[in-house]
Amino acid sequence: MRPLDDPRTYLAKGVAIGYLSLLVLIPMAALLNNAFSHGLGVFWSAATSTESLDALKLTVACSLFAALFNAAAGTATAYVLVRDRFLGRGVLNAIIDLPFALPTVVAGVTFYTLYGPHSPFHLNITGTWVGITVAIMFVTLPFSVRAVQPVLESLTIDAEDAAATLGASPWRVFRTVTLPAILPSLLTGTGLAFARALGEYGSVVFISNNLPYHSEVSSSYVYSLVSQGNDSGAAAVALFLLVGALAVLITTNVVARRLALRRG
């Protein structure tokens, strides 16, 4: 019997498809249906109202900035965690994932206390795009670090050492040896972080001060539409976000795969 004919693979396939349908495909189809339930015109005017576009611009800008910043800072963090040996490295390594576990609302309130009007550091970033970006950076940091870390671990240090012995500066070693190796996963991690950032609500809604047309993010605008009973409007704006996220995820995946193939 060829492995593909094994009934167990059909079972696995069935489970995978059933599971994906229940969790992702059916809800997405329902969302799509909801968004267009009053026709294309209503969908378009809901998604492109001034308040929606203002929120969208802010959300995309902050998400992009946070994802890019995390790409740099996250790679540096992963590099230190993999290459350096220091006291507390294990603890630090475990802490990286905490933003995933912490309820985002708690993170939002904590950031408000630390970087708000009563900041012990005299640093008030509430109600600004900086505040929104910082909150998003916190929530998406694990994506950036964890995407790069395993590749760095599997990357033998010999090539870096060889380059260094041949007289390359540390920066050049990183640029010509390390970076090309981690670039595909770095792209995937950044894409994931960006997609996650677009929909972030809990950590952002406090620190933004939530002023419509000004510091209101898309997820909060969607929430306001839902609480006004405007489900199709909410679905329309959410669909806009989803399409954006999907485009970024596909692009980063394709580019990452090409890069990986080229390296062989």
């Binding site: 206390t113 406090f206 001060n209 002023l211």
Partner: peptide, 20 residues
Amino acid sequence: HTVAQPTSGSAALSTFLAGT
């Protein structure tokens, strides 16, 4: 003159108590 419009009355109280 409004500097924050939190999502609910209780969120507004939290924001105010946090110093805004």
